[in-house]
C-alpha cells in the first residue's frame, strides 16, 4: 500500500518537474507558431489595430517578389561554396589530427578557436581585412593583384561563405575527428590483408563509417545557410546589386523596417518550408541506417 502510494506520488512529481517546460513551450513556442501562421494571412503594419484578412495574397506577392528569389538564389550560391569547402577542409584537418598524437589537443583547440568568435566581432574584422584597400589586398598588390572581396557582385557571397568557413572549420573537424576515432582499426587491417589500397579504404571504410558525421554536418550547414544574417547585414548591407541579400535580411527589412508583418510572416513560412525540405532531402539522400 505504502509503496503504491509512493509510486503514485512520484508520477505526480514527474508532471511537476516537466510543467515549467510545458508552460514555456506552450507560451513561447506553440502559441507563436500558430500566431505566425495566422498573421501570414493578414495585412497588418504592427502599429494599427486593423488586421485585414487577405487570404493567400501575401504568399502570392512573396512568390512574385524578385528579392524572394534573389535571396534563395544567394542561399544556394552560399551553400555551393560553403558546403564543399568546409567539408573538404575540415575532413582534411580531422584526418591529420587523427594521424598525430603529439600536440593533438593543442591543434584541436587551436582550430576550434574561431568557432567561439561572435558574429558581430568577426564580421567587423573581415570587413576591414578584406576591404578594397585592406591588409589582404595591400599584400596581394605586391604580387600584382587585388580582389574586390565584398564589392564585386559576382564574388561577394563567396567571400561571405569563406569567412563562415573560417568560423566553422574547427567545429566540423572535431565532429569528424570523433567519427574517425570511433572506426575500429581492425577494419583497416582486414582491408589491408585483402589488398585494398588507401584510396579504396577511404571510400569503402572511412566515408561510410563517417556517415553520421556527414549527415549531422550537412543538416547543420543547410539550416545555418538559410539563417545567415549578421555577416551580410554588417559587411555588405545586402549589396552589391542585392548579391548578398539573404532571406532573414529580407524578413527583417519587410517586418521591422517596412512594418509589413503579414508579408514578413508569409515570407518566413515559405523560407522555413524550403529549408525544411532541404534538410529532409539531405537526410533522405545522405543518412544511412547504422550497420
Amino acid at each position: 500500500m505504502n509503496i503504491f502510494k509512493k509510486n503514485e506520488k512520484r508520477k505526480l512529481t514527474g508532471y511537476w518537474l516537466v510543467l515549467p517546460y510545458i508552460i514555456f513551450t506552450a507560451v513561447l513556442w506553440v502559441y507563436p507558431f500558430f500566431w505566425g501562421l495566422v498573421i501570414a494571412f493578414k495585412k497588418w503594419n504592427i502599429i494599427s489595430p486593423v488586421k485585414e484578412f487577405v487570404g493567400f495574397d501575401n504568399f502570392l506577392r512573396v512568390s512574385q517578389d524578385p528579392l524572394f528569389w534573389t535571396s534563395i538564389k544567394n542561399v544556394l550560391f552560399f551553400m555551393v561554396a560553403f558546403v564543399p569547402l568546409s567539408i573538404i577542409a575540415s575532413l582534411t584537418v580531422a584526418w591529420m589530427l587523427h594521424r598525430i598524437k603529439f600536440l593533438r589537443a593543442f591543434f584541436s583547440i587551436g582550430y576550434l578557436m574561431s568557432y567561439v568568435s561572435a558574429g558581430v566581432a568577426y564580421s567587423i574584422v573581415f570587413m576591414i581585412l578584406f576591404s578594397g584597400d585592406g591588409l589582404i589586398n595591400t599584400w596581394l598588390e605586391k604580387i600584382g593583384v587585388t580582389i574586390p572581396w565584398f564589392s564585386d557582385a559576382r564574388i561577394a557571397m563567396f567571400s561571405i561563405a569563406l569567412i563562415v568557413v573560417w568560423k566553422y572549420l574547427g567545429y566540423y573537424a572535431l565532429i569528424f575527428l570523433a567519427g574517425l576515432q570511433s572506426i575500429p582499426k581492425t577494419m583497416y587491417e582486414a582491408a589491408e590483408i585483402d589488398g585494398a589500397n588507401k584510396w579504396t579504404q577511404f571510400w569503402r571504410i572511412t566515408v561510410p563509417m563517417l556517415n553520421p558525421c556527414f549527415t549531422i554536418i550537412l543538416v547543420f550547414a543547410v539550416m545555418m545557410s538559410f539563417n545567415v544574417f549578421t555577416e551580410p547585414y554588417l559587411i555588405t548591407g545586402g549589396g552589391p546589386l542585392d548579391s548578398t541579400q539573404t532571406p532573414v535580411m529580407q524578413i527583417y527589412y519587410q517586418t521591422f523596417e517596412a512594418l509589413h508583418a503579414g508579408y514578413g510572416s508569409s515570407f518566413a513560412l515559405m523560407i522555413a518550408a524550403i529549408s525544411f525540405a532541404f534538410v529532409f532531402i539531405v537526410r533522405k539522400s545522405v543518412e544511412r541506417e547504422a550497420a
Binding site: W29, A268, A272
Partner: peptide
C-alpha cells in the same frame, strides 16, 4: 526552423 518564431515572438 527558428526563423518561424522571429516575428510572432
Amino acid at each position: 526552423p527558428a526563423i518561424l518564431f522571429l516575428i510572432p515572438r
